[in-house]
């Protein structure tokens, strides 16, 4: 009722400019579409893609070794520098960490999402959802900080190990070469744990959404056709949940690849990609090399996204 009333009122007072504009837009849907798309596209096009382009441009410049100024001439030398052993080290370390974190997150997320999607009902389901959303959205720094408290040498894990007389186990784990260290907060294990913790909700949500969409009758059909629960799981449920897992892995992988705060606060003194970029553009002032470094995750992510797109993961986002 109120809609029609308002409609007639407008006709009475002035079938004027607004009306003509809206009619014109209605008659030319393409114009209307263009009008809707223009502001966000302009913003992202200029602010985001524009500055991305400025960055990529820098990666084709080089830096004068002596003066420290940027030489504005096209060169591939900066990219060649990426292949130096110490720089390859950083790239490989980051990619391995991103893969490890993604796999661990998928392994942890699957049972949680499976339970939430298939067994939790009514009130419990809402609670489950909320319990996943809250850590997802709660402050990133606060989460990292919490782990600094937990992993510190005098912190909660050492205390718990002491209480349960398992200090020897903790020391054993810390004595593992490469991933161990003097304390959990200064080791790759610590960095890995914090990464998993911080990105886990990003994996759970799309996986759960994908599992929710598995139709119940498909599972019954599978059982009717003689499949054992295990077979139903591996041939029906898991393939249908896979796009969700892949959608989640986009986040865990990309976020791990670019993060420079977690390894700085919890971890060894060796660099990850993000840290390398940060120090290169900051204290070192070598923007060309920093730019070349950022091209690495961009290329990795574009390859990853194009593979993910083919598996239908984008609909699970």
């Amino acid at each position: 009722m109120s809609v029609t009333a308002a409609g007639t009122a407008a006709v009475d007072f002035g079938g004027g400019l607004l009306r003509r504009i809206s009619d014109a837009l209605f008659r030319k849907p393409m114009w209307f579409l263009a009008l809707l798309l223009a502001p966000p596209l302009l913003w992202l096009g200029i602010v985001y893609l524009g500055s991305l382009f400025a960055l990529l441009l820098h990666s084709f410049y080089s830096i004068d070794e002596f003066s420290g100024f940027i030489v504005y001439e096209f060169t591939l030398a900066t990219y060649a520098e990426l292949f130096r052993l110490s720089n390859m080290d950083v790239i490989i370390r980051s990619v391995v960490m991103a893969i490890a974190v993604t796999i661990a997150c998928a392994a942890m997320a699957f049972p949680i999402s499976y339970y939430a999607a298939r067994y939790a009902k009514g009130k419990w389901k809402a609670l489950f959802y909320l319990m996943i959303m809250l850590p997802l959205w709660s402050s990133y720094l606060v989460k990292v900080y919490a782990w600094k408290l937990i992993l510190a040498k005098e912190g909660i894990i050492s205390w718990m190990a002491e209480q349960t007389h398992l200090t020897w186990l903790l020391d054993l784990i810390l004595s593992i070469p490469v991933i161990g260290g003097p304390s959990l907060s200064i080791s790759y294990i610590g960095t890995f744990l914090v990464f998993c913790y911080v990105w886990l909700p990003f994996m759970i949500l799309p996986t759960q959404a994908a599992l929710e969409r598995v139709p119940g009758n498909l599972i019954e059909a599978s059982a009717d056709l003689g499949a054992e629960p295990r077979q139903t799981f591996s041939t029906v449920i898991f393939p249908l949940a896979l796009p969700g897992l892949i959608a989640g892995s986009i986040f865990t992988f990309s976020l791990t690849l670019g993060d420079y705060i977690i390894p700085q606060i919890v971890g060894t003194s060796t660099y990850f990609l993000g840290q390398a970029v940060y120090t290169l553009q900051g204290t070192a002032g070598n923007i060309p090399l920093a730019a070349a470094f950022t091209v690495v995750p961009i290329i990795i992510m574009l390859i990853y996204l194009s593979i993910a797109k083919r598996t239908g993961a984008f609909d699970a986002l």
């Binding site: 966000p40 596209l41 992202l44 096009g45 602010v47 985001y48 893609l49 524009g50 500055s51 991305l52 400025a54 960055l55 820098h58 986009i250 986040f251 990309s254 976020l255 690849l257 670019g258 993060d259 420079y260 993000g274 970029v277 940060y278 553009q281 923007i287 920093a290 730019a291 950022t294 995750p297 961009i298 992510m301 996204l305 986002l317």
Partner: peptide, 20 residues
């Protein structure tokens, strides 16, 4: 394009804005 700013690592958004 709309999801790119969260699909690419945040550090890329940051450093490209800074260089711009």
């Amino acid at each position: 394009l709309f999801i790119l700013p969260i699909a690419l690592p945040g550090i890329i958004t940051g450093i490209s804005l800074r260089s711009a």
